[in-house]
């Protein structure tokens, strides 16, 4: 493993202007707030957080679909802004949540999978067809589906087609945005197994966005917890799931409903003060819902603390703060 991370985000911020009402002045909504992340080759970074926390915006920034307001995205140490879109597309590809929306219903499967090759002008018609057949085999679909339309296939098969389309250009990084949450339980595991196999076979790096923590625990090597645009904790899977440090991570883990009938529905002690991202709370963004919040949390935003156990953004784990208050 080389020292240069295959994908790196440095202080990436994405702000949207939200107009309220017809004559309201636009207010800024910071969807991604000063995010710094590194992915090494072969990593699976699980990104977890509530809907609206900025996960999907971050994915769009990584795919080059949205330009960050500030900060930079580096692929192999080179700034993304300097690379042209086609070069970027060869290296980073997405897999979406809903296989019913991610495939054009008016196209045949062969044309859907071949689109990246056509756009990038790879090979001729014959070599492209060969590549499509190969990748179809890799994702475990029989060649007879090539002439099918998406409406003739099941949800799991469609998701396999979407994976084939993402992989046909042999990218290094795949952004999986909730790739199994629209699928039936019995199909989910097959797609998860496939994603795991493909990673080992092609040395892929995944950014795995999911709200299903059990799945993230199973597949990821690292986890980043996002809250209101900020990464509040980032560490290895083992650290996070065995000993979460941020109160929000703890609440998230507590909310996971393992199929254990001897246990009750957990009490998260989170409250319902879900903050408005246009008008975030003062101090620590999480303090209105945090069971461990103190006076300090209301006024001062915690700084990111990086130590042997990973990164965490909470006053409870900031030694300097602990000393001043003690």
């Amino acid at each position: 493993m080389t020292d240069t991370p295959v994908l790196e985000l440095r202080n990436v911020t994405k702000t949207y202007k939200i107009k309220q009402g017809l004559f309201g002045t636009p207010k800024p909504l910071t969807a991604v707030n000063d995010v710094t992340l590194k992915l090494n080759k072969g990593d699976v970074l699980g990104l977890v957080g509530e809907s609206g926390c900025g996960k999907s915006t971050l994915a769009k920034v990584l795919l080059g679909l949205e330009a960050p307001t500030s900060g930079e995205v580096l692929v192999d140490g080179k700034a993304l802004g300097g690379q042209d879109r086609l070069a970027l597309a060869r290296r980073i590809q997405p897999i979406f949540q809903d296989p019913y929306s991610s495939l054009n219903p008016r196209k045949r499967i062969q044309d859907i999978i071949a689109l990246p090759l056509r756009v990038h002008g790879v090979g001729n018609e014959a070599s492209r067809e060969k590549a499509v057949r190969e990748i179809l085999d890799v994702v475990g679909l029989p060649a007879r589906v090539l002439t099918n339309y998406p409406s003739q296939m099941s949800g799991g098969q469609r998701q396999r087609v979407a994976i084939a389309r993402a992989l046909v250009m042999k990218p290094e990084i795949v952004i999986c945005d909730e790739p199994t949450s629209a699928l039936d339980v019995s199909v989910q595991s097959q797609i998860l197994n496939l994603l795991g196999d493909l990673r080992r076979e092609f040395g892929l790096t995944y950014l795995f966005i999911s709200h299903n923590l059990a799945v993230v625990e199973h597949l990821a090597t690292e986890v980043a917890v996002m809250y209101l645009g900020r990464i509040v904790e980032k560490t290895t899977v083992a650290n996070l799931f065995d000993a979460p440090r941020h109160p929000y991570s703890q609440a998230l883990l507590k909310s996971v409903l393992t199929p254990d009938p001897s246990m009750d529905v957990p009490e998260t002690h989170l409250g319902m003060a879900y903050p408005n991202p246009i008008d975030p709370p003062s101090g620590c963004y999480f303090h209105p819902r945090c069971p461990a919040a103190t006076k300090l949390c209301e006024t001062r935003a915690p700084r990111a603390v990086q130590d042997a156990k990973g990164l965490v953004e909470c006053h409870l784990h900031d030694e300097d703060v602990a000393m001043t208050t003690a």
Partner: peptide
């Protein structure tokens, strides 16, 4: 039984291993 094997069980399923599947539709 198949359904229960399809989902990763935190604390029971070993991380990163193959999950059980129910083939077919």
């Amino acid at each position: 039984r198949g359904l229960l094997r399809c989902i990763p069980l935190p604390g029971k399923t070993e991380r990163g291993t193959e999950l059980g599947t129910i083939p077919g539709i």
